[in-house]
Design a protein around this nucleic acid. Structure first.
Length: 150
DNA sequence: GCCAACGTTGGC
DNA sequence: GCCAACGTTGGC
């Protein structure tokens, strides 16, 4: 089985890596973007997920996680009072999905600024200006290089 | 807090 | 199905 490498963004003041650490694992819910959704559905048990803090002082990769459960329909899409409620989604044909991510470890912040300097990150959407995708696929090379420099 | 980038919505 | 208007993300 091939391991895939992914990166998920989370806002430091909404769901920081420390919270994932104390939770041990979490359902990665609330993603409402089709491309990101497609990636979430492709995640297989055992895949490596890099945790990225966005919207903060020093945006960058701050930890590692692993897929412990493959995607199920995101329960929040059916909760009318939720910010993530989607009235157009049905239980028969759910629109949004969430895998479960397990905490592995925290690493010293590899900042966006640093990542931009690596030639092997050049073709990743992460380092492109204006990129807003919150779930990204990484190549094996990128995954291994990040682990190496962590 | 500003603003560039870009996804989504809705009128036609 | 085009595209303008609008809303959101996220770096700075």
């Amino acid at each position: 089985m091939t391991i895939n490498y992914w990166l998920v963004k989370t806002e430091e003041d909404v769901y920081p890596i420390d919270k994932l650490k104390s939770d041990k694992e979490t359902l990665w819910d609330g993603v409402r973007n089709y491309q990101a959704r497609n990636y979430l559905k492709q995640m297989k048990k055992g895949d490596i997920v890099f945790i990225y803090h966005s919207n903060c002082k020093e945006p960058g990769i701050v930890g590692l996680g692993e897929i412990s459960k493959e995607a199920i329909p995101d329960p929040l899409q059916f909760v009318a009072s939720s910010d993530y409620y989607d009235p157009k989604s049905t239980k028969e044909s759910p629109r949004w999905f969430s895998p479960t991510i397990k905490y592995k470890k925290t690493i010293p912040n590899i900042s966006l600024e640093t990542l931009r300097q690596y030639s092997w990150m050049k073709d990743s959407p992460l380092t492109r200006t204006g990129n807003r995708l919150s779930v990204l696929s990484l190549t094996e090379r990128q995954g291994l290089e990040i682990i190496k420099s962590s």
